[in-house]
């Protein structure tokens, strides 16, 4: 409905031609998620339309419990839609192997592996890297993990165990793990939600740089409106449960964006407008 048209409005600072067949990365078509059976059902996600082009950075915002994370689970094939369709890379999700990197609100590091081994985990699972994992784990892959760790400010922490790192450091490592296999699709589920403001803002900058380097398609779930506006090329606003997308707008600000830009008038106006959309969509307020 609105996504199709409005994504044409999205004219970010790079060359995406919306609507063109081969450029579609994600498409949700009347995707609905219902938990439970019989009379005791909960609709987690109302039939939702969403289309994301390749190379876009889409931020999903909305009140808590509105089904933002559900959309991520659908796209990452952790959850199947109760009805409707989810397409990733032009095919039904799961039909074709798409390089997906995912970071969660909790860093979810495997506690028995060192930080570096945690970061290298996708290389062990995902083709074409998996076939070379045994040979390259001590050489090429190791260097690759270390290089990535250095980019997020974790140089020299590869040999540490996860419990020796702080929450912010673990989240940086988690970002590395999501990126190491150079995924076409990056799914971020409130990855900075549990961090303090300063760490969070620093990581926004790092994430922006990483994205600018290789331009993967990103779907970011967040409840931080400044974060959405800072990082996204497009922001989708969701209504409270059962969630659906009620607004979809581009973020025209130039890249690379800086933290001080988030206090500019345009920027503040944008976040203010988003805030009002969300508060007015809540049934108890409206």
């Amino acid at each position: 409905m609105l996504t199709e048209q409005q994504s044409t409005r999205a004219t970010p600072s790079f060359d995406v031609v919306p609507g063109e067949g081969g450029r579609e990365a994600i498409k949700l078509e009347k995707a609905e998620v219902v938990y439970g059976r019989g009379k005791r059902t909960t609709q987690a996600l109302a039939p939702t339309q969403l289309r994301v082009e390749k190379g876009e950075f889409v931020a999903l915002v909305g009140p808590s419990g509105c089904g933002k994370s559900t959309i991520l689970k659908l796209v990452s094939n952790l959850l199947a839609p109760s009805s409707g369709h989810v397409h990733v890379g032009g095919r039904e999700v799961g039909a074709k192997r798409v390089g997906v990197g995912m970071a969660f609100q909790n860093p979810t590091m495997l506690p028995w592996l060192s930080v570096r081994d945690n970061v290298m985990l996708p290389l062990k699972i995902v083709p074409p890297f998996r076939s070379r994992f045994r040979k390259a784990r001590k050489g090429e892959f190791r260097d690759r993990a270390d290089a990535l760790l250095e980019k997020v400010g974790l140089k020299g922490f590869g040999d540490k165990q996860p419990w020796q790192l702080s929450g912010g450091m673990l989240q940086r490592a988690s970002l590395c793990r999501a990126l190491i296999h150079e995924p076409e699709l990056l799914l971020l589920d409130e990855p900075f939600g549990a961090l303090d403001q300063f760490t969070r803002e620093e990581l926004w900058g790092i994430l922006q740089n990483l994205w600018l380097e290789s331009k993967p398609t990103v779907l970011l779930v967040t409840h931080d409106l400044r974060e959405a506006a800072f990082l996204g090329t497009r922001i989708c606003v969701m209504s409270p449960r059962p969630g659906k997308i009620i607004d979809d707008q581009p973020v025209p600000m130039a890249r690379p964006r800086t933290i001080s830009m988030t206090y500019d008038q345009d920027f503040v106006r944008l976040t203010q407008q988003l805030r009002e959309l969300i508060t007015h969509s809540r049934p108890d307020v409206a």
């Binding site: 997906v100 969660f104 979810t108 996708p122 296999h181 799914l187």
Partner: peptide, 23 residues
């Protein structure tokens, strides 16, 4: 959550057992 990390990478059940369950 630990299993989801591997599932989202498209790991098979056996791989999840080997890399997460057993350790």
């Amino acid at each position: 959550e630990l299993e989801d990390v591997l599932k989202s990478l498209g790991a098979k059940k056996r791989e999840i057992l080997w890399n997460v369950g057993i350790p």
